[in-house]
Design a protein around this nucleic acid. Structure first.
Length: 502
RNA sequence: GCGGCGCUGGUCUAGCCUGGUUAGGACACCAGCCUUCCAAGCUGGGAAUCCCGGGUUCAAAUCCCGGGCGCCGCACCA
């Protein structure tokens, strides 16, 4: 077996990504910064198409709103959201061996319950009165310290007004809720989406493109009234099967997942809101469109101890990756009215809405599907990567998620061939065309396959006599002769993306 | 954060242990020739802060110290 077959896909992909301009570590000339990544020409386009497909599935198909809010938020926003106090690790550092522990984990493992939101002083007191020592070396701990996972900045010159870089896009939706509700014709349910950069000052980011300090989130805040809109009015989603690993199964030590028909899950009370399984089914359709294999993703219900501070119930969508195992690519949280109530309390603005059917006023509840774009991009690339027997690399991305729509090549790099090829390339101006006339035809096909361009049009001798070209398919290397006149229509058909059917 | 290992043109790497010519190769790239379909060949070419800083030495890619980044394990991952 050739060595190339035993190569890790991760290594091949990372090498390809650097060499062909998909992604690479940022600021390398200054030594690099952990957790920051630059997307190149190819990576940018694949990610942009991935985002567009997500928008098609999660925004357009449901007629949701989509907005773009600032990356910087004033401090009160993140006081109200609970991030300033909760999106933080209180940590203890051993004075002897310098190991760092999360205070809550360390103390609860030692059988000492600590009060919710304990202050640093309280933790120091507990540590000294209970005589807690470092589990590694029995050394003493220094004073507890706080590690805030949000990036902090200052708004304005010398004003001292603290701002935070957003750790999620959600708060930019919640803070605008009153206006968005009017734009949404003052009725529930209502979905508002956002795609944008978020920032998390991770203690120790690693795993290449998987754990980043700055990345792109694609999320929907879905507002509803649990009494009058407990779930979708259509019932199609109930008949779908989804791969689920429940909290109950995990507590029993089960590690696999099982296929659950949504209707059965609903009837056994698995879901705290029926909007959760609806979005899980939509996500299953989305991952199918990404060609992530059926056995390679699952929805894992998070255990109560793993849940974010705002979540009543949380499912992660995990994709199985070669190097990192089951990896979270999306989270589905039932946030209840936690966020709007928080902003109501801190800002003093009334977030209640009037429900006509019941004549009642209430603060809307929220279910939030939230996707990490870079992780999905990586998963897409890993499951698209093909390493041929002869060592050739091919990215078998779905056509609608490829960095170019089509390559156009002259068979030979002679002036008349090149001229004709340029003409055909111009004619296909509605598509993103990769025109290449350097090297041999085989080399050009290889370069084109390597970055996943699904189709190639080649101008050959016959083109000059009957105005036909060959259309080559990346995955099969099959070639079909086609009239130049029907090329546009044929490509449009081949490049169309699927529609969510939920 | 802790420990181990690593870092050399765009990519992958030889050289490092045992300090000393113009830091070698493969692939990729560019130009020309050739070429009737899958990384062919020929000729020429460009391209390297040997991760950064300091130290030892007549002399450092090579030895020592500190830092950055990467990988693996531990910890962390609202």
């Amino acid at each position: 077996m050739p060595a190339s077959k035993q190569q890790r896909k991760t290594d091949v992909l990372v090498e390809l990504a650097k060499r062909r301009g998909i992604f690479w570590p940022s600021y390398e000339i200054y030594g690099g910064v952990r957790g920051l990544l630059t997307l190149g020409n190819i990576g940018f386009e694949i990610k942009r198409r991935l985002e567009n497909l997500w928008i098609k599935y999660f925004v357009y198909s449901r007629n949701f709103q989509i907005i773009e809010s600032p990356v910087i938020g004033p401090r009160p926003v993140y006081v109200a959201s609970g991030h300033e106090s909760q999106f933080t690790d209180k940590a203890l550092k051993c004075e002897k061996c310098a190991a760092v522990f999360r205070a809550d984990h360390l103390l609860s493992e030692a059988g000492i319950p600590i009060p919710e939101g304990a202050s640093l002083q309280q933790i120091d007191e507990i540590v000294s009165t209970k005589g807690v020592k470092c589990p590694n070396c029995k050394g003493d701990f220094s004073k507890a310290f706080q590690w805030l996972l949000m990036f902090k900045t200052e708004i304005g010159a010398g004003t001292g007004e603290i701002g935070y870089l957003r750790p999620e896009t959600a708060q930019g939706i919640f803070t605008e809720f009153k206006r968005l509700y009017v734009h949404g014709r003052s009725s529930l349910p209502m979905g508002v989406a956002q795609v944008g950069r978020v920032f998390r000052n991770e203690v120790s980011p690693r795993q290449g493109p998987i754990r980043l300090r700055e990345f792109t989130i694609m999320e929907v805040e879905f507002f509803f009234d649990p009494d009058s809109n407990p779930g979708p009015s259509e019932e199609n989603y109930l008949e779908h099967e989804i791969p689920v690993l429940t909290a109950e199964d995990q507590e029993k030590g089960v590690t696999g997942f099982r296929k659950i028909r949504v209707r059965d899950g609903v009837e056994t009370g698995l879901f705290s809101s029926n909007w959760l399984p609806f979005f899980l089914v939509l996500t299953k359709r989305f991952l199918e469109a990404l060609k992530i294999p059926e056995e390679a993703f699952r929805f894992r219900e998070k255990l109560p101890s793993e849940r974010a501070h705002y979540a009543k119930q949380l499912f992660d969508c995990e994709v199985l990756l070669e190097s990192w195992g089951w990896t979270e690519v999306a989270g589905f949280a039932y946030r209840t009215d936690f966020d709007l109530s928080g902003h109501m309390r801190v800002s003093g603005e009334d977030m209640n809405v009037f429900i006509s059917s019941s004549g009642r006023r209430m603060v809307p509840h929220v279910v939030e599907p939230s996707f990490g774009a870079e992780r999905l991009l990586y998963a897409l690339l890993e499951y698209s990567l093909r390493i041929e027997e002869d060592g050739r690399i091919r990215l078998s991305t779905p056509p609608y998620l490829s960095p170019f729509d089509v390559s156009v090549f002259p068979l030979l790099s002679k002036p008349d061939f090149v001229k004709k090829a340029a003409e055909v390339a111009r004619m296909l101006g509605d598509f993103k065309v990769n025109f290449d006339d350097s090297g041999s035809i085989g080399r050009r096909y290889a370069r084109s396959d390597e970055i996943g361009i699904p189709f190639a049009v080649t101008i050959d001798h016959q083109t000059f006599s009957d105005n036909s070209v060959t259309l080559r398919f990346r995955d099969t290397r099959e070639q079909r002769r086609i009239e130049i006149g029907s090329l546009h229509a044929e490509l449009s058909k081949l490049l169309s993306s699927p529609k969510p059917d939920v």
